[in-house]
Design a protein around this nucleic acid. Structure first.
Length: 373
DNA sequence: TAGGCGTGGCT
DNA sequence: TAGCCAAGCCT
């Protein structure tokens, strides 16, 4: 077990917190220690950069200023407020947790890390952050910054992508976190990880804790943290259907268990599975098959047409989408009884929560308008 | 435990 | 470009 002496620990705390007191970032969620403010910011900051979060946080607080407001908001409005931020289950889980707080806790926050972690969407990191920052509990908050900072300080070579590694880091940090300023300590580690001890272009020579950084002193910074490689995203091919009717465009609400759950998009048809089922079809045959699949229950014969617009590609964490825009113009409203969608006029687009890939599709479709006129 | 789940910045 | 990374959690 790695351990610093009490003297070294105290000296580290002092160096870190003295630096933090003078140099901490001025962030909107640092104006007070309201658990609601800390919570919302921590959820938004999961896998998301600070500069991206700031405007979303400001807007979210205007729209949903309290746990109660969040608990009672329409889901469509929540998703719209989250549009473009990604990982959309975060906001749906946050509303469920808000409802848990109202119903099970009478609107009063639990203070312990263990109780906080029982709320949906609050894991070990976020529970530690709220417990330490809002409630002054001496709990570690181990995020990517803490993994990087402490792996370098103590030359810890455990693979940080393995779940059991978290326990090791929490044990180390429990020995170092000051009992009187746990929240500031955790935030100081994050500010350190965002300034001197960054993943790339770090500046450890000027770091306030360089004297405690064993990997720096040994010139072994590039060896830490240890992290196994990620999988490559899998290629997926779809037709994106631009179905126009006199009343507007046909949009589909994505299934609640799908990628981009409950967001609105042009309907997609999976080309890869079409191709697998019909290996001999050429491009026009595939398109015909897609049309048959989509307009299955209609009596009309509706032909999809290729659009002369650039293909759209969009990369998620685990999938890379390749989208081919195709279209059909309908003289009347289609039969939507078997379909989770609706017809939306162009003026109504902005009310729907649209994922970034849909915005790319729309932009690509617009290039067609420019060519035509 | 490993894979699913978004997006944007940076190299 | 393609790959890596950013205040992770759920199943």
């Amino acid at each position: 077990m790695i351990k610093w002496s009490d003297e070294k620990t105290k000296a580290f705390q002092k160096a870190l917190l003295t630096w933090y007191d003078t140099n901490k970032r001025d962030l909107p969620w640092r104006k007070d220690h309201e658990p609601y403010h800390i919570w919302v910011s921590e959820i938004m900051l999961q896998q998301t950069q600070v500069n991206t979060v700031i405007p979303y946080y400001e807007r979210f607080m205007r729209l949903f200023p309290s746990v109660n407001a969040l608990a009672n908001a329409p889901e469509s409005q929540l998703l719209k407020a989250w549009e473009g931020l990604g990982y959309y289950s975060r906001v749906r889980n946050m509303q469920r947790a808000a409802q848990q707080l109202v119903q099970d806790y009478a609107g009063r926050w639990p203070h312990s890390k263990a109780e906080l972690q029982e709320l949906v969407g609050i894991g070990p990191y976020t529970a530690g952050a709220i417990a330490s920052i809002a409630f002054q509990q001496p709990e570690p908050a181990v995020d990517g910054n803490a993994f990087r900072v402490f792996s370098q300080l103590l030359e810890i070579d455990a693979d940080i992508t393995k779940p059991q590694t978290r326990a090791l880091f929490e044990k180390v940090i429990r020995q170092i976190i000051p009992i009187d300023r746990p929240g500031d300590f955790n935030q100081a580690i994050m500010d350190l990880g965002a300034s001197y001890m960054t993943p790339k272009n770090s500046d450890n020579a000027h770091s306030p804790v360089r004297a405690f950084n064993q990997a720096y002193l040994d010139d072994r910074l590039n060896e830490f943290p240890v992290r196994s490689k990620r999988q490559k995203p899998v290629d997926k091919h779809y037709f994106a259907l631009v179905i126009r009717t006199p009343a507007g465009f046909l949009f589909q609400q994505r299934a609640s268990n799908a990628l981009l759950a409950k967001l609105w998009m042009f309907p997609l048809i999976d080309i890869d599975s079409l191709q697998e089922a019909n290996p001999d079809l050429d491009e026009s045959g595939l398109l015909q098959m897609a049309g048959k699949q989509f307009f299955e229950d209609t009596e009309l014969q509706i032909e999809l047409q290729y659009l002369d617009v650039p293909a759209v590609s969009h990369t998620f964490t685990h999938q890379k989408w390749h989208l081919t825009l195709v279209s059909a113009d309908l003289k009347s409203k289609p039969d939507l009884s078997h379909f989770s969608g609706k017809v939306v006029s162009e003026d109504e687009f902005e009310q729907l929560a649209l994922p970034t890939v849909q915005k790319k599709l729309w932009a690509a479709f617009q290039t067609r308008q420019i060519k035509l006129f």
